[in-house]
């Protein structure tokens, strides 16, 4: 089996490279959007408790809906293709991103905040010089979860015509070609593992740099 999978990578290298690049493109777009929206929402939530309650509840509810069902619902609204896939993946990725941003920012020691305000920090200084750096480690751990999740979910995106490595899985399932299915899955898993290892290393550096801990 392993031999035939390696053989498959060798024979269809062009096909797999193309799918890999598509997958990286889709997940990169989703990661950028999720990070931006997640950070902004998290920030907004720290200023408006009502918005915080609504967003946290809503994102938890989205989490309980099976991903395939979300794709189904979105296809009926935004049609088959990349747009639906990106919306669904972003919706899924928002919870860890929003929660970590919100938690990170609200858990900064009140005494530190008061010291910064008492010394004359404006809102902008307080956010960029004090709160965000001190929340960075927590935000980054949410970012890491989101990235791994987005890479994995990218595999399902091809089921609604978005491309990516899920196409190899889909093709393997529909033609009963197990090697193809496994070859596609292995590549997705490999990207996720590599990304996780890199981000784990960066997270450790961030923790040491900003909090002086490895936790």
């Amino acid at each position: 089996m392993i031999k035939s999978i390696i053989g498959l990578y060798h024979q269809r290298s062009q096909f797999f490279i193309e799918l890999l690049l598509q997958h990286l493109y889709i997940t990169s777009v989703c990661i950028v959007i999720t990070t931006t929206v997640g950070l902004l929402l998290g920030l907004l939530m720290t200023r408006h408790p009502l918005i915080a309650a609504i967003v946290l509840r809503l994102s938890s509810v989205i989490y309980t809906i099976p991903s395939i069902a979300i794709f189904g619902i979105l296809v009926s609204i935004t049609g088959i293709g990349l747009a639906s896939a990106i919306i669904a993946i972003v919706l899924y990725g928002l919870l860890p991103m929003v929660r970590s941003t919100y938690t990170g920012l609200t858990e900064v020691d009140d005494e530190i905040i008061e010291a910064a305000v008492g010394m004359g920090s404006g809102q902008r200084h307080l956010l960029f010089w004090v709160r965000l750096p001190l929340a960075l480690a927590v935000i980054f751990s949410g970012f890491r979860t989101m990235v791994v999740m987005t890479i994995a979910l990218g595999g399902i995106a091809s089921f609604i015509g978005a491309g990516g490595l899920g196409r190899a899985i889909w093709r393997g399932i529909s033609t009963n070609y197990a090697e193809m299915t496994i070859a596609g899955s292995l590549l997705i898993a490999a990207i996720a593992i590599v990304a996780d290892l890199i981000l784990e290393y960066i997270e450790k550096r961030v923790r040491i740099r900003y909090l002086g801990e490895e936790g």
């Binding site: 020691d109 005494e111 530190i112 008061e114 010291a115 910064a116 008492g118 004090v130 750096p133 001190l134 740099r209 900003y210 909090l211 002086g212």
Partner: peptide, 10 residues
Amino acid sequence: AIQHGALFPH
């Protein structure tokens, strides 16, 4: 100046 110094850890 306040108790514990309240220094910025980062």
